[in-house]
């Protein structure tokens, strides 16, 4: 690995000051499960690595009536070991439990998954369908942006070099709502998604009609894709297989996958269709409780 320096700021302001000074020469280190691997193969060569984990705000989370305010460096394992979070956000937990195995989950953060901006990042579709917001801070202060606006290209976010992700804020689940994340991998563990889908739905009180829905896709484009049209078309539709099929076809239509060693275009589009149906069915089941 190339040579670099290591900084351990203990407050947000210190971290912001370091980033302001170093700009693109600095990279934040959360769990390091992307960053260190990337540095080892020469994909990233920062001169300064800034540890995010000594900053209390980034290591905390708060679950209350407003939802989940998730410090960017909180690990996947911390999340799914909290039964209150598990109960409130089963789709988020599905993502967290899929990111690597136990060893990875003990270090990997949702914030790191988002900032790494991989098309296959397993938490990103879920965050999108849960309507999460990224809270970003930089020398000019704080700004909030929708999670679907964070990733702009493979490995690239809309954050400036001198900005960092403070928290991810996920609203409290609405009444009669449910969400689900599923990915397709060849093995049963330890793989990168060939395709993935997150779906969330809000149903009418009697569970017969979709009031709204959000669908997001992973690994089928340069970034995770918010399939807004596919979700929107469900609004007002009856909860049945025909509606679900229609949404799945719409989701498949916006997928723009490539052929690579992990899968083919045809296979990935087909999988988006299958996974959209499967996640919608499960989200509906969860909404109905």
């Amino acid at each position: 690995m190339h040579s670099f320096d290591f900084a351990t700021p203990t407050s947000v302001s210190d971290a912001v000051a370091i980033l302001a000074k170093e700009g693109s020469n600095a990279r934040l280190l959360a769990g390091g499960t992307d960053l260190l691997i990337g540095m080892r193969v020469g994909r990233a060569t920062p001169g300064l690595v800034v540890d995010a984990k000594q900053i209390p705000e980034l290591k905390q989370y708060k679950l209350d009536g407003n939802g989940l305010q998730l410090g960017s460096a909180v690990t996947c394992r911390t999340l799914y070991e909290d039964s209150a979070v598990v109960d409130a956000y089963p789709a988020l937990i599905e993502s967290a439990e899929l990111i690597g195995g136990m060893q990875t989950q003990g270090r990997a953060s949702i914030g790191g998954n988002l900032c790494n901006a991989a098309p296959s990042g397993d938490s990103i579709p879920t965050l999108i369908v849960l309507g999460a917001e990224a809270v970003v801070i930089g020398p000019n202060g704080q700004r909030n942006l929708a999670v679907e606006d964070v990733c702009v290209a493979p490995g690239k976010t809309s954050l400036a070099d001198n900005e960092l992700l403070l928290t991810i804020n996920i609203p409290a689940p609405a009444a009669n709502s449910g969400a689900c994340f599923q990915r397709f991998i060849p093995r049963n563990e330890m793989d990168i998604a060939i395709a993935s889908v997150a779906s969330s739905v809000v149903l009418s009180g009697d569970g017969s009609t979709f009031e709204s829905a959000r669908i997001a896709l992973g690994a089928v484009g340069p970034t995770p894709i918010f399939a807004q049209g596919a979700g929107d078309l469900l609004a007002g539709k009856p909860v049945n297989e025909a509606s679900i099929q229609e949404a799945a076809d719409a989701a498949e239509a916006v997928a723009t996958p490539i052929n690579d060693m992990r899968g083919t275009i045809e296979q990935r589009k087909h999988l988006i269709n299958v996974l959209t149906k499967r996640t919608l069915r499960e989200a509906v089941a969860r909404a109905k409780g």
Partner: peptide, 9 residues
């Protein structure tokens, strides 16, 4: 916490 020590500095 259980970790892979190759992924820790």
């Amino acid at each position: 916490t259980l970790v892979a020590s190759c992924c820790v500095l």
